[in-house]
Structure formats: structure tokens, C-alpha cells
Amino acid sequence: MLEIKNLNVSLEEEDKAILKGVNLTVEAGKVHAIMGPNGSGKSTLSYVLSGRGGYVVTEGEALLNGENLLDMDPEERAAAGVFLAFQYPVEIPGVGNMTFLRTAVNAQRKARGEEEISATDFLKEIRARAKDLKIDADMLKRPVNVGFSGGEKKRNEILQMAMLEPKMCILDETDSGLDVDAMKLVAEGVNALRSPDRGFLVITHYQRLLNHIKPDVVHIMSDGRIIKTGGPDLALEVEENGYADIVAEVA
């Protein structure tokens, strides 16, 4: 599904390398987790995959089902199936949440040569999905993320993911700022989307989200590299001993 090969990324503004040769393959149907200390480059990886500006790829490639992602505009990547649940979802005053989502769904359909969703079908679907995530009608009407609590913003990200039905879901610290109940809701939302033809890359600083979203593979990232890869147990090890031991062990 997603193949990242020797990905090297620097900042556009200053000559500073952030990712220093990331190699990673996420197979369809699998959940991969990336853990790592703050500042190790996890968010950068998620942004580079989704096409945010400000970064320069100095080496390497990223392929989605064989297609070179890095040559595409962000909207093309979205239409191809990439979805990033943001660590910090953006507030957009003046744009209604519902309008935003319908525009997005239809833009992706159009890009794929599919027919637009009818207003009634869209309403039906969004109501059902929103209900699962305990998102009320008011939140759907309000401007995108404006006045939302931290937990509401994260649930709103999962709602978008559910509506857009991406192939490759990247979640960046979706658990941060969530209480236990909200985390369960979010995890249920993610688990409901798990399917044999969809891949997940779950970025998290803590292990606790992985109790709810069970990963198949766990990677540890440090200083712009994947320094260790293992099974679900690796997350538990990090939980108990912290990152220091692993970083030291590899160095």
C-alpha cells in the first residue's frame, strides 16, 4: 500500500535535515504504529506524505500503490487515497463544517471521475457517522473546528476520515488531549474503518492509544530515522522503559 524508501527531507527555509533516510512499508489491511520522542520527525513525515509546503525532499521516494506521491499536489494525494488526521486540526472561520465536508467528498469523487453524492445521501451518511462519534448537529453546522474543544477537533478529524474513506490513513497524535472516553470513541471510529484494503499509520507518543487500536507493527523513530521495528510488544517496552534505552541500544 504505502512504500517509503530512503526518505530524506530538509526544511525549505533553513538548511536543516529532519528526516534522514526513512524506510517503511505499510501493507493493505495492516496497522503500523510510529512511536518516538518529541522532535524526532513524526509529524514531518506525515506532512511530507500529505504534501504540505515548506519541506524539500532531498532523496528517496514515497509510493502509494506504486504511484509516486511526492510529485502530486495535496488534493491529488487525497483523491488517490491519502488522509492525514492532523495533530493540530486547523480552524477555518466562515466555512461551515458540513459545507466543507461535502465540498471535499465531491471534489475527490470528481477527481476520480465518479458522480457527485446527492445532498440527501450525503446528509444521511454524515448523520450516521457523526452519531457514532457523538458529534451533534450543532458541531456540523459550526465553522470548521472553530470553538471546538481539543477532543471535538480530534473526533471531527475521524468523522472526515470516515466520510472520505481513504486507502491510507495517517493519524498524527490523535490521542493527544483526549480523555479516556474520547479516546475510546476515536479508537472505535478508527477500528470501524479497518478493512483488508486499507492501511493505517498511527503516530503516537504514548502507548495507551495502541491498547485500543491494536497495531500489527510498531516502529520507533528517533532523530529522523526508524531505529527499531517490532511487534505490539515493542510499544509495551517503550511504555515501561521509555525511549532512552532503545536510542542508546541502537547508537
Binding site: 504534501g51 499536489d73 488534493e75 486540526p89 486547523v90 477555518i92 471535499a104
Partner: peptide
């Protein structure tokens, strides 16, 4: 930031 957010959801520039 808002522009990238919209584009990342598939809305062209």
C-alpha cells in the same frame, strides 16, 4: 494553514 487543510481533504487549490 487553512488552505493546506482544505487541499489535504481533496479540495483543489
Amino acid at each position: 494553514e487553512a488552505l493546506f487543510y482544505l487541499r489535504s481533504r481533496g479540495v483543489p487549490e
